[in-house]
Amino acid sequence: MTGSARRIWGLMFRHLALYRRSWPRLLELVYWPILGICIWGFTTRFLAGRMGAGAAVAISGLMGGVLLWEVCLRSQMGMAVSFLEELWSRNLGHVFVSPLRPWELVTALIGMSFIRMLIGVVPAIVLAWGLYAFNLFALGPVLVLFLINLMVMGWWVALGVVSLVLRHGAGAEPLAWSVLFGMMPFSAVYYPISVLPMAVRPIALVLPSSHVFEGMRGVLSENTIHWRELGWAFGLNVVWLSLATALFAWQFREARVRGALLSIGE
């Protein structure tokens, strides 16, 4: 392994060792996605009984929305909470005086985010298939592109949260759990953008997630891949990720000016 690869693995090993020794943390990873899919699964089953044959697409859209949103949410929380774990263990001082570069730190956090997302979402996907006969993979190979876009969105939101924690200390940590929920109404997870009032549609249109979910509904209802929506999602992710990276770099430097890396806290 090269020096960078070893340092990235070192930080990931620290988090994997933590999960090995803390079953409540592992349980928490799978608890919310499974709870979500159970609630929505029974809801859609109830609705399917009341609605006509045309309800199938809407119901698939709901189930697909639940699972894909979990991918975005778990990616964001996986990255932000992994950073917060360093804060909670008062270990940041040691991490930042090691030769670990900031980009290596971010890469390790992304790696942990991916692992945490898999641990949380895979059981929910299996449950949706087993209990409600909803097969997410029926979306076809384009599913991979949807997943990539939603994970990247989770990462840039998390990078923004980490930047705010660097700026405002542990007082900003509730954002790790709440910020993406604030974006959910505009992400067109369960309904098309056209349902939204005109005044808030611009907000939806600048979020990559809304284009992914519009694309998902296109595949489910028309069996057509809307490449334009995917293009928008990729393009917006590039812009937001660049902005979040610049914000992180700026706040990291500011934290070094203020001495916050050693004393970061409330």
Partner: peptide, 30 residues
Amino acid sequence: ARMNFSSPYVSLPQRLTVRENLRVYGHLYN
């Protein structure tokens, strides 16, 4: 990479064993 630091005011992760903690820093310092 060629220096190091110790302070009682900066902790190591509490749930990790001593060996795991030292292994983490072994990786970070290559």
